[in-house]
């Protein structure tokens, strides 16, 4: 199958990109193209206009600031996020998720923001950033705004973006001392593969107790799912085996997964319990270090 026919635009500024989107309703933004072009080739997506954001200067920056935290620009490649020394040091789970998103070639093309905006329930980069309370930076005809990533996903392939809006960056706050994060995903082919089920957690410790716990589950609903009741079980507690066990069981009850080519609903539910236990335990250990 060849790609369907479209006009290609390569604006050089965010303002130009917004103006183009206003002028060409139905146009889609493209960064690495590793999702969009597949949809056009294999899933029958037909577009009149494709707007590449790659020529917009400055969008590929990655910064790790002692006070402001982590910022990943819209065209920063998965490969660069995965290997960024400061991300590896301060946000290792973000690097791990970027690395686990896809194979080397796709990591050299695809972007973290693209993965988020594609809004697949299986997006590898979402759960960790969600757990960290990340925000997306949005530019649009109405100006600039920030939105918690938690409000960004509305359904499979659907985001909270308004017409002619563009996500220019994702920001993760500076992590508090004694914070631990973890993300585990499963797929039939082991690693670097499309995720059948995944869970991420962030834990902030106060003494031995969890002051803050955030848990997000991927591939088990139309969007990544926050396991609020599970968080409540762990919050304020020391993560003993009993608490972890209870949290795992609760997490499985908080999702209503579907069956698809990658796993059955029942298996996904069971794995949510297993992975929740594992990420809580990992994040807890990391937070204690």
């Amino acid at each position: 199958m060849r790609l369907s026919h479209f006009d290609y635009h390569a604006p050089e500024t965010v303002a130009q990109a917004i103006a183009l989107m206003q002028a060409k309703p139905g146009a889609r933004l493209m960064a690495g193209g590793t999702d969009l072009l597949i949809k056009m080739r294999h899933a029958g997506l037909k577009l009149q206009d494709v707007i590449s954001v790659k020529s917009i200067k400055g969008l590929n920056t990655i910064t790790v600031d002692e006070n402001k935290g982590l910022s990943i620009g819209a065209t920063a490649l998965l490969a660069d996020v995965a290997l960024h020394p400061d991300i590896l040091k301060y946000y290792p789970t973000v690097a791990q998720a970027a690395r686990g998103t896809a194979n080397a070639q796709v990591r050299n093309m695809g972007t973290v923001i693209g993965n988020l905006c594609n809004a697949s329930p299986a997006a590898d980069n979402a759960p960790t950033l969600l757990a960290m309370n990340a925000e997306v930076e949005i530019h649009g005809p109405g100006g600039q705004r920030r939105m918690p990533l938690e409000q960004f996903f509305k359904g499979p392939g659907i985001t909270a973006l308004q017409p002619a809006e563009i996500v220019t960056a994702v920001h993760a706050p500076k992590l508090a001392p004694h914070t631990g994060t973890a993300y585990i995903s499963l797929s039939a082919r082991g690693q670097l593969d499309c995720t059948a089920v995944g869970v991420a957690a962030m834990i902030v410790l106060k003494g031995k107790a969890c002051e803050e716990v955030r848990i997000f589950i991927s591939s088990c609903g139309p969007t990544p799912v926050r396991a609020l009741k599970t968080e409540a079980i762990a919050r304020g507690k020391e993560l003993t085996e009993a608490v972890i066990e209870q949290a795992g069981n609760q997490a499985a009850g908080e999702v209503k997964p579907i069956a698809d080519v990658r796993a059955s609903a029942g298996y996904r539910e069971k794995m949510v319990a297993v992975l929740t236990r594992r990420v809580l335990s990992q994040a807890y250990t990391r937070a204690s270090e």
Binding site: A10, G33, L37, I38, S52, Q105, V106, N108, M109
Partner: peptide, 15 residues
């Protein structure tokens, strides 16, 4: 491309 391996099937020539 510029020293990085990419999938040429998912790369637009125009870019």
């Amino acid at each position: 491309v510029d020293g990085r391996a990419v999938s040429s099937c998912l790369t637009l020539a125009i870019e």
